[in-house]
């Protein structure tokens, strides 16, 4: 796997004595969209937090383009080219939309090309441009989600981690977000997508892993979206 962009090898994460993620091995290749689904508490968000350096990895190895990330701090991981769109958006409500976007530059490695990226992001999410001077807290949930993704993109990441981007969004907005994700991938960004919407994710992603009780139970391709029996079995395992 020479083109492995993100590589998790036997990763274990614990909250106190309780393991949240156990022996997790998965690879996301360059330019791939990989889904991560599973019931609540399966360890999906924890996996993203472990990659990001927000929670410590007890065992195993996480590599970004071959470079070890273990023990790196969140700001280092961000500056290494990983951007996380956290669950619940976490935009800064009292800052303007434009200031929220500028925060995305904190993790950006290259100073050039910001103008072009901004133009692209504005095309992708016009709300971000239209409401630039408004406080982010005044936006709807769907608009905040688009802002959160736009903010992550301004960091020009190699890898984009998304934690339940469809949570609480109206169906049309979910469509907007997912078609944007497809376009983001076409730009060469590698995507690891954590979702609750199993069917949607399986048919959208190149591969989808099912996580349950901290373990990887099943891997499905886009054509397995109808395979509810195996999916249900994996969820309940």
């Amino acid at each position: 796997m020479s083109d492995a962009m993100l590589d998790l090898e036997s990763v274990e994460v614990r909250y106190g004595a309780v393991p949240a993620v156990r022996d997790l091995t998965l690879t996301v290749s360059r330019g791939e969209i990989v889904g991560l689904i599973g019931p609540n508490g399966a360890g999906k968000s924890t996996t993203l937090h472990a990659i990001m350096g927000v929670v410590p990895v007890a065992r195993g190895e996480i590599r970004l383009a071959g470079q070890r990330l273990r023990r790196a701090r969140p700001e280092d991981v961000a500056r290494a080219g990983v951007a996380l769109v956290p669950e619940g958006r976490h935009v800064f409500p009292h800052l303007t939309v434009e200031e929220n976007l500028r925060l995305g530059l904190a993790g950006r490695r290259r100073r050039n090309g910001i103008r072009d990226d901004l133009d692209w992001i504005h095309r992708l999410f016009p709300v971000v441009k239209d409401f630039g001077s408004r406080h982010a807290g005044a936006l709807s949930g769907g608009q905040q989600q688009q802002l959160a993704i736009a903010r992550a993109l301004l960091a020009q990441p190699d890898v984009l981690l998304l934690d339940e981007p469809s949570l609480g969004l109206a169906p049309t907005v979910v469509e907007t977000v997912f078609s944007a994700l497809a376009e983001i991938r076409d730009k060469g960004v590698t995507i690891l997508l954590v979702e609750q919407r199993a069917q949607l994710t399986i048919s959208f992603a190149d591969r989808t892993h099912v996580l349950s009780n901290g373990r990887l139970r099943l891997t499905l391709g886009p054509n397995d979206a109808g395979d509810t029996d195996r999916l249900a079995a994996a969820y309940l395992s």
């Binding site: 701090r73 969140p74 700001e75 961000a78 800052l95 925060l103 960091a155």
Partner: peptide, 14 residues
């Protein structure tokens, strides 16, 4: 000052 964790995730150096 509002949300240090999210700020760090974005690359803000603590």
């Amino acid at each position: 000052a509002v949300d240090f964790r999210t700020a760090r995730i974005l690359g803000v150096r603590a």
